[in-house]
Amino acid sequence: MSDISLIGTPAAESPGREAPAATRVRGYWGNVWQRLRYDYVTLFFLLLILLIVLSAIFAPLLAPFDPNKASMAHRLKPLFFRTNYLGTDEQGRDVLSRILYGGRTSLLMGIVPVVVATIVGGLFGVVAGYAGGRVNTVIMRCMDVFFAFPSVLLAVAISGSLGGGMVNQLITLTVVLTPPLCRVAETSTSQIRSMDFVDAARASGASTISILLNHVLVNAISPVLVYASTLVSASILLASGLSFLGLGVSPPTPDWGLMLSTLRQAIYVQPIVCAMPGVAILVTSIAFNLVSDGLRQAMDVKA
């Protein structure tokens, strides 16, 4: 065999000791999880998000009343009015039940557009960043067209032309969220693209697809994922805004933004009850923001 003295041999490091145990191979995601495990703030808010999601999924089991059952006798009652723990709205419907059911719409609006936009925007961004040149110019200038409008205005414009309804609202949000995600993916890909290990992979004769999957994507993806997680709360807020303006789901479907909109007129009568859907939006978006912050720190492993 070779006569090169091996770095890491027991003889070279400390004579007479047992060979060091073979290092356990822990993947990148394993390392991320190791960091998250000790980040209690992030874990707490992760748990909170889980609870919110579960409460929305199991709304029929948890809700004390039918969210659409009105009662003319008990309109705009305060908190803890009998078993209406969060009071009743302007039609006498139970606010707690409506918030639980409304979470279904709002979380859907928060998560689905972000997931779709991450896939679509990420794909375009990675292609633009890796290919460079003309391809990059074409893709990124198209994205710039959308960037030219403020996001709320763009959402209102698209929603307005597509009309209301849940599917149209999802489409609107996806279109609004795609360009920023594409831009983040493009930036991080073009940084990775200029690294020598990509050239080394090309020099080994690998196909572009293999290089993208094995070398580019794993390195370019973490800023995209972190940014996407911050967009969840933005998407919920945007959806609430659209519903508030009457461009989203139509009444009587419970939705946090829509509830806020209809309860607004009663703000001088029952201010605290009126604020409840807003509190739901606030807590959810704070939770998503803090989790994405923790995720950023955990993924910002030196390697």
């Binding site: 070779s2 090169i4 003295s5 091996l6 770095i7 890491g8 041999t9 060979a19 060091p20 073979a22 290092t23 356990r24 191979v25 822990r26």
Partner: peptide
């Protein structure tokens, strides 16, 4: 010159 079981992972 690198011990594989030590450096490989």
């Amino acid at each position: 010159g690198l011990r594989p079981e030590y450096f490989g992972g």
